[in-house]
Design a protein around this nucleic acid. Sequence first.
RNA 1: GCCGGAGUGGCGAAAUGGCAUACGCAAUCGACUCAAAAUCGAUCGAGGGCAACCUCAUGUGGGUUCGAAUCCCACCUCCGGCACCA
Length: 854
Amino acid sequence: MTAPQASDTTNRTRMERYDAASIEPRWQARWNELGLYRTDLHDDSRPKFFLLTMYPYPSGDLHIGHWYIKSPTDAIARYRRMHGYNVFFPIGFDAFGLPAENAAIKNRINPRDWTMRNIEHERVQLRSMGASFDWESEVVTCDPAFYRWNQWFFLQFLKAGLAYRAVSPVDWCPNDGTLAREQVEGVDRRCWRCGAKVEKRDLAQWYLRVTKYADELLDFTGLDWPEPIKTMQTNWIGRSEGGEVEFRSAPAAHHAGGEPIRVFTTRPDTLFGATFMVLAPEHPLVATLTAPEHKAEVEAYVAKARAATEIERLSTDREKTGVAIGAEAINPVNDERIPIFIADYVLAGYGTGAIMAVPAHDERDFAFAKQFGLPIRRVVAEPGDEPQELGDAAYVAHGAGERLVNSGRFSGMPADQAGKAIVAWLGEQGRGKPAVTYRLRDWLISRQRYWGTPIPVIYCDTHGIVPVPDEELPVRLPDTVDYRGSGENPLARDESFLNVTCPIGGEPARRETDTMDTFIDSAWYWYRYLSPEKAGAALDVKLAEAWTPVDQYTGGAEHAVMHLLYAREFTRMMRDCGILDQDEPFKRLFNQGQILGTDGERMSKSRGNVRDPDDLVRTYGADTIRLFLMFMGPWDQGGPWSESGIGGVHKFLGRVWALAMDPHRVEPGDPLGGRLPAGQDAAAAEAAIRRVAHQTLRDVTADYEAFRFNTMVAKLMELANALFRYRGTEVAGGPAWDEALRLMLLMLAPAAPHVTEELWSRRAAAAGRSWSSIHLESWPEVDVAAASEATREVPVQVNGKLRDRIVVPTEVDAATLERMALEAPRIREILAGRTPLKIIQAGGGRLVNVVVRE
RNA sequence: GCCGGAGUGGCGAAAUGGCAUACGCAAUCGACUCAAAAUCGAUCGAGGGCAACCUCAUGUGGGUUCGAAUCCCACCUCCGGCACCA
């Protein structure tokens, strides 16, 4: 793609061509100088509009995908301002995280230096878009002035019992220390850096008790969010209703028995079909219940399970494995003794970590039973399909209208009632109760990493876990960091960071070296935008009450069950700590699609398919890129990057420029140039111009409202094409033309802010008016009368097939329309004297369909 | 496997029960030019016909309807998420 240049000498002398490079930096500087996008948060004379777009991670270079999110979002900001809203449109940087650390280890520099240098560059890139961010509200999360409030929130949560510490397994490399899950490679689980075998290690970790909000988070009432996101969150939270049933261990040579073993089931109706029990390898009773002769085998299996990743353990196609522990459980519904196994398909972290296995009615239990030759007993059947004998060895999918069989006193009961009945019956004996379980886990926030917010606690041998006192916040990251070329957390051997005295008794004590998950930062960052400099509190409650929840949030759907869920959880934790009385952070959410590389893969530096916007800016200018990204297709769609159409959009801006700057020119190649369309006098031409301009305004307004930017641009192109037809004619430059051009610039201003500002200022100068920014103008009103037409065309169908079009007066009545349709020559011909069975007028007379017998 | 989303010209796409293919790209032709580029104009789903027009076409197969790209049923393909959650 070569740069369009004004190379024609004749044209250059005639007219100055559209040249973005000479326009855009000038206006960006001017807007900045005037503080045009600085929001007065205390101005309550206008309705507020908090427009938030997901802040970028400063990885070094923004790519075209970032522009795809931010260009239309900026258009929304500008459109809202033109409607009289006090728009707050801030930006910041999600500055903590692993890539900074990896780059730092590789290049032997401080993650801070790497991050701040990238932010510097990205600020320049973002400014080159001409986006109307309020830069004075900028938030950078690696700034101690920001992350000290992460620490403060954490301590509030600790006080409220919402943060707690527990032991859990993490991935651990013998050479490089702790690893993130994505740094463990291959099925044999090797370290990405040194290739050593990775194992699981139990570490004490900090959690936030977000499962407390599971039910609340399922309620999306009042939220205007995309359905797919709500579905994903709902599935992620994964509420299951059923019962918790207490089995007992049976007495055995090595064990007295009577130990309660609780299981969770969604199918209590199948309790009589339980033929064995499975515990998770990590289940606390495994050690107690295992018979001495099974000990070696059981311990070996537990060790093996620990070496496997979650993904491996949970992969569906894997063959079932497990071992018997040499003990039995007693089924409370029939006092049957069933063998106990451990198997890694049962997860310690879900339900009670133990299941009753009903192979006849559960696919996984069925597979396990087949593998180990265990009995399979059907206890639910459709009438007429009852099993002939107990050992009927088949898995039966759940169906409607089933009744219980082989289930003692419950046999014959409809399956959909039996579950509740059995749980109630067990409940009377204290052996069971209704229960709800969630897939959602508490949020593990500990990271064994340097580049994050230090968790503000101290471990003292005398006083245990001691919170860092508020007045000692922030706990700062040390400025010097020595990685020794390894991934191990350098904080863990930084003696000056590590060694402290206990805030309670003054004894020597040690600091927590784990840092927080960076999703903590993004779980509340938008509140900080409102008062980024505030020293005494995390947020300004008055401003937060006035400005939040966020009115519109834009960003990618890849955050569906992470950031977007964490933010909802965090807001509720803030609420429960009495910090801000708010449940939901984002009223309205829009997920734009994702721009992929030309290869159809996700854009990433390692794939080498990243499109850098900077040289596109140099070639075409920001306005063209912004407009092209909006024109490509529906905003929520995205797709592989292709710039083959960008020239067309650039040409369109050139045509708008020509209409404004040189209305009287007739292009030498235009055979109709300079003459009005046949049969149109000047008055008719002016009416036609006003009609198309106001119709466009009507349609474009609706498109902006619905974020349909692609059709918005198409309609402006049509308007430009329509005006071009009148270029060089006697009406060019006249009042109707002038009005149409004014509307064109106003409609285009949110999308292409620079060229419209330039043409706006030139119009003011030409008219002898003083300049005032187009971005301070109000959105124009549609002149309904001007947009209306005297006649309209109505398609006439016969049996649903288009056969003719007739021109009728706009306000024609139904009877007249029907008569005119039947009288149309082609329709008469096709009807050939047949009497219509029915005549349908659709959409209030927009279309006529004549139905006849074929 | 389960849950979402999507399949329309050579390409990006428009139309969400009523004129299929708006707008743009590419392509072809023409004007301007010594020439090229830029610019301007025209043509542009497939097949048939001298033509007016006709037939076919929105992933595939059925259905509902006067009328279906649009709604329903079954299937195919692609993309995203979850992935032994008892």
